[in-house]
C-alpha cells in the first residue's frame, strides 16, 4: 500500500513513468457518476491532469462542468468510480475512509468560500485544529498556529472569535489553518466568493506571496480575473478538460 511508504522519494518512484518526478497531483482517466433520482449524471468523464510542485493552478468552468466534483476528488473528500489519482505519491484512489482522513490532514490545506471556521473557537484554536488531529502536543501546536497566523498577518487577532473578525480576516484565519500543517497543496474553493473586491485583491495577493515562497496552490473559481492570478488555468466542460494553458500565453 502506497500510503504506508513514508519516504516521499520512494513513493514518487512508483508514479507512472511518463509523468515528471516532481508531480504533486496526477489523475488518470478520473471518472465519477452520481445517481440523481434514477438518472445517472456523469460528473467526470475521464480527467487527466498533472500538477507539479510549486505550481499555481486555477481550475475553471461553468456550473455543471464537474469542477466541484474534481475539487472534492483532489481534496480527498470523495473517491472516484474509475481511473486513478496520486497525491504526493499516495495512490489515493485506493484508500479507505480513515486513510483519506489522514491524507487530508497531512497533505491538503482547505480554503472554502464560506470560510468554515468553528464559530465558538478562537482564531488560534481554529488554526490549531488540523494539528490536534495530527496528534501534535499542545505546546508545539500553539507555537505552530501562532506562526501560521503571523504569516497571514493576523498575529494580533489570535484570541478573537470568527464573529469578531471581518470577512477578509476570517478568510486569513482559514488560510492560516490550511497552511499550519505544511501541506503539499493548498486547495482553495472560490476563496473570494464571499468577499468584496478590495478584500479579494488582498487575499489573492496573499496567495501570490505564499506561491512565491514555494507553496503549491490549486484554486477553483468561475471568475476570470481571479483565475488570472494563477500561472496556469485548467478549463473544464462537461466533465472533461477543455483547455489547459499558461496564463501568460493569453495575456
Amino acid at each position: 500500500m502506497t500510503a504506508s511508504l513514508t519516504d516521499t522519494a520512494e513513493r514518487m518512484a512508483l508514479l507512472p513513468a511518463d509523468v515528471p518526478r516532481d508531480a504533486i497531483i496526477v489523475t488518470r482517466n478520473l471518472q465519477r457518476e452520481y445517481d440523481m433520482g434514477g438518472e445517472v449524471v456523469r460528473a467526470l468523464r475521464g480527467v487527466d491532469i498533472v500538477i507539479r510542485k510549486n505550481e499555481f493552478v486555477a481550475i475553471m468552468g461553468p456550473s455543471g462542468s464537474g469542477k466541484s466534483t474534481l475539487m472534492n476528488m483532489i481534496g480527498c473528500l470523495d473517491s472516484p468510480d474509475g481511473g486513478e489519482y496520486w497525491l504526493n505519491g499516495h495512490r489515493v484512489s485506493e484508500l479507505e475512509d480513515d486513510e483519506l482522513a489522514r491524507i487530508r490532514n497531512k497533505e491538503i490545506g482547505f480554503v472554502f468560500q464560506t470560510f468554515n471556521l468553528l464559530p465558538r473557537a478562537t482564531a488560534l484554536h481554529n488554526v490549531e485544529l488540523p494539528l490536534v488531529y495530527a496528534g501534535i502536543g499542545s505546546k508545539e501546536r500553539s507555537r505552530m498556529a501562532i506562526d501560521a497566523l503571523q504569516r497571514v498577518g493576523l498575529g494580533d487577532r489570535m484570541h478573537h472569535r470568527p464573529n469578531e473578525l471581518s470577512g477578509g480576516q476570517r478568510q486569513r484565519v482559514a488560510i492560516a489553518r490550511a497552511l499550519v500543517n505544511n501541506p503539499s497543496i493548498l486547495l482553495a474553493d472560490e476563496p473570494t466568493g464571499n468577499l468584496d473586491s478590495a478584500t479579494s485583491v488582498d487575499i489573492m495577493a496573499l496567495f501570490e506571496t505564499l506561491h512565491a515562497t514555494g507553496q503549491t496552490i490549486v484554486l477553483v473559481t468561475h471568475e476570470h480575473d481571479i483565475a488570472a492570478h494563477a500561472d496556469r488555468q485548467v478549463h473544464l466542460k462537461d466533465g472533461q478538460v477543455e483547455r489547459d494553458f499558461k496564463t501568460e500565453a493569453t495575456h
Binding site: 481534496g75 473528500l77 475512509d97 480513515d98 482522513a101 489522514r102 487530508r104 490532514n105 497531512k106 482547505f110 468554515n116 471556521l117 468553528l118 485544529l129 488540523p130 488531529y133 495530527a134 489553518r177
Partner: peptide, 16 residues
C-alpha cells in the same frame, strides 16, 4: 453537521 464536515475535512477520522 457543518462542524462535523469541517473537522472531517481537516483530518478527523470516524473514530475521532
Amino acid at each position: 453537521t457543518r462542524e462535523i464536515g469541517i473537522r472531517k475535512a481537516l483530518g478527523a477520522t470516524r473514530l475521532n
